[in-house]
Computed example of a mutant assay.
Amino acid sequence: MPSSGRTHVRARPERTCVGCRKRAAKHQLLRVTAVEGECVPDPRGALPGRGAHLHPDPACLDLAVRRRAFPRAFRLQGALDTERLRGFIGELVGGAP
């Protein structure tokens, strides 16, 4: 059978960071979900519901909070608590030995 001339490149899923709005590979971003009015980190991607993706960087988190990106991404009204998410990102950036 003759070759079509196409190379087979595996498609890698991309997502957009809700903070900086830059696209990145899905595995480079942290999935976040909303649970009872709180932004919860979902590193395994297993929690139910809508998810938002964010670079695991405090600067991107600050941008997302300032732009009110989480309520918009989750299609919810009002502010969401981000302290748990902030602590999780702080631990990632701080570097656990």
Rank of each mutant, 00 (worst) to 15 (best):
M1G: 15
P2C: 05
S3N: 14
S3K: 13
S3L: 14
S3T: 12
G5Y: 09
R6S: 14
H8Y: 12
H8V: 15
V9R: 15
V9F: 11
R10D: 08
R12F: 09
R12C: 00
R12K: 15
R12E: 14
P13A: 15
P13Q: 13
E14G: 02
R15T: 08
T16K: 07
C17A: 08
V18A: 09
G19I: 02
C20P: 02
R21G: 04
K22Q: 13
K22E: 15
K22V: 10
R23V: 15
A24K: 09
A24W: 07
A25F: 10
H27I: 03
Q28H: 12
Q28D: 14
L29M: 07
L29H: 03
L30N: 02
V32T: 05
T33K: 02
T33G: 07
T33S: 08
A34S: 13
A34Q: 13
V35D: 12
V35H: 11
V35P: 00
G37A: 09
E38T: 14
E38G: 00
C39N: 06
C39G: 03
V40A: 03
V40F: 07
P43S: 09
P43V: 08
G45N: 04
G45E: 11
G45Y: 08
A46F: 03
L47G: 06
L47R: 15
P48H: 10
P48S: 15
R50I: 07
A52K: 06
H53N: 13
H53G: 00
L54K: 05
L54T: 02
H55T: 03
P56S: 12
P56Q: 09
D57N: 13
D57H: 10
A59N: 08
C60Y: 01
C60R: 06
L63R: 15
A69H: 04
F70W: 00
F70S: 03
P71M: 01
P71S: 01
P71R: 02
F74I: 03
Q77P: 03
G78N: 08
D81H: 06
T82P: 00
E83H: 09
R84F: 04
R86T: 10
R86M: 01
F88A: 12
I89Y: 05
I89E: 01
I89H: 02
E91Q: 14
L92T: 08
V93L: 05
G94T: 06
A96E: 13
